[in-house]
Simulated assay, not measured.
Amino acid sequence: MPARALSERAARAALAAHFAPGQLAAELDEYTPAEVWDRRVRDDGSGLLASYRPREELAQAELTCSFVIPSDEEWPTALADLGPVCPLGLWIRGRERLPRLTGNAVVVTGNRVPTEQAVTRAHDFATALAEAGHTVTATLAYGVDSTAHQAAAEAGRASLAVLPRGLDGAHPHAHASLLRSVLDDGGAAVSLYRPGTAASGATLKASAVVLAALARAVILVEALDHVEAMYAAETAVDLLRLETDESEHITDRVAGCLALKYGLRTDRLVSLTTDQVLVHPEEPGVVGLQLAQAQRGRPRQLRRQPPQSGTCPDRARIGPNRQLRN
């Protein structure tokens, strides 16, 4: 009796647990996800993939959160802009809310150890966005990101959290209550990684790419000091979605920091004021005046690709993929 065919969902979840999308893009252009998995199992001399049970692993993981794939109606269409590095799937808590939240998502991110002025401005931006009908989107990191979620909650609006680890926990661990609050207030949490996956340098960078791609814009508050915010900024520039806080000296510091690290053209960084956030959310593609420039609907080739290894927790190692302390 022939073996039961692997579903697309189970195959994508299995592939995502072991490979980054860019490693599989060429094969997925030619074969189905189930066929790609079978090919990878046959070619794996270590036996690691042969011992993996895609159906059972998916069923166990979905006790914690849902695995959404591109054929699902909840799939965020904005991720198509990532082209060959578009995720194989997303792990979601609050799945039924995702289309509503991602339709007007705007990222507010920045310094993990912010000045008092930066905290105030992050709070003001997030409040203005929430009250204008946009979904405040951020990581759960200390500083600007957590302030953004708190501001949205205070405004009585749902927010969207993107995590660099499995959704069975928070990153950092100290913000587990913040994650619960996001979900209890009608928001959702998104991750590239199955439950049980710890945060690492690689997961932070890959998650930052998704963070930027999910949103209509990325608003940077204060000079950046964290790898995830830097990768989000790089992706936003590639997708023409970058906005910067124009408070005194801040824009120059952000531009200089990005230019130094990535060799970006600083004339592509556009400043944004709180007043420019106060617009009607039903205007397509508009958050502030500059967001009319945002272009969507066609894949862009990112100049800086997200990490192509370290997606499987069993393969964490010293270096950029090392697991992080919370």
Rank of each mutant, 00 (worst) to 15 (best):
250 I>E: 02
267 D>F: 14
288 G>L: 06
263 G>I: 04
270 V>S: 15
293 Q>P: 02
271 S>Q: 06
284 P>C: 03
297 G>H: 05
289 L>P: 05
257 C>M: 07
260 L>F: 12
291 L>S: 15
288 G>N: 12
300 R>S: 11
248 E>A: 13
281 P>K: 04
278 L>V: 15
248 E>G: 10
276 Q>I: 07
264 L>T: 07
262 Y>W: 08
275 D>Q: 08
262 Y>K: 00
265 R>F: 10
289 L>E: 09
296 R>V: 11
279 V>D: 10
277 V>S: 02
249 H>E: 09
296 R>H: 14
262 Y>S: 02
293 Q>G: 03
297 G>A: 06
282 E>A: 14
264 L>C: 08
254 V>N: 00
294 A>Q: 02
284 P>Q: 00
289 L>H: 04
252 D>Q: 09
252 D>C: 11
287 V>I: 08
266 T>K: 10
260 L>Q: 11
281 P>T: 09
290 Q>L: 10
267 D>P: 10
278 L>G: 10
283 E>G: 12
296 R>D: 05
299 P>S: 13
252 D>T: 13
298 R>V: 15
265 R>A: 14
302 L>D: 00
301 Q>T: 13
272 L>N: 09
256 G>D: 02
260 L>G: 12
282 E>L: 10
295 Q>F: 14
287 V>P: 00
248 E>S: 10
250 I>V: 13
270 V>W: 02
271 S>L: 01
280 H>V: 08
255 A>D: 11
279 V>T: 15
298 R>K: 15
251 T>P: 07
286 V>P: 09
276 Q>H: 05
275 D>M: 07
281 P>Y: 06
264 L>I: 15
278 L>P: 11
282 E>K: 11
291 L>H: 15
301 Q>V: 09
251 T>Y: 10
281 P>F: 08
269 L>M: 14
298 R>L: 15
296 R>F: 11
257 C>N: 08
294 A>G: 01
266 T>V: 14
287 V>H: 00
294 A>R: 12
251 T>E: 07
255 A>N: 07
253 R>I: 03
256 G>Q: 01
287 V>F: 03
257 C>R: 07
257 C>E: 13
259 A>Y: 04
252 D>N: 10
276 Q>F: 06
287 V>G: 00
298 R>I: 15
291 L>R: 09
279 V>W: 08
268 R>P: 03
293 Q>V: 12
298 R>E: 13
266 T>Y: 03
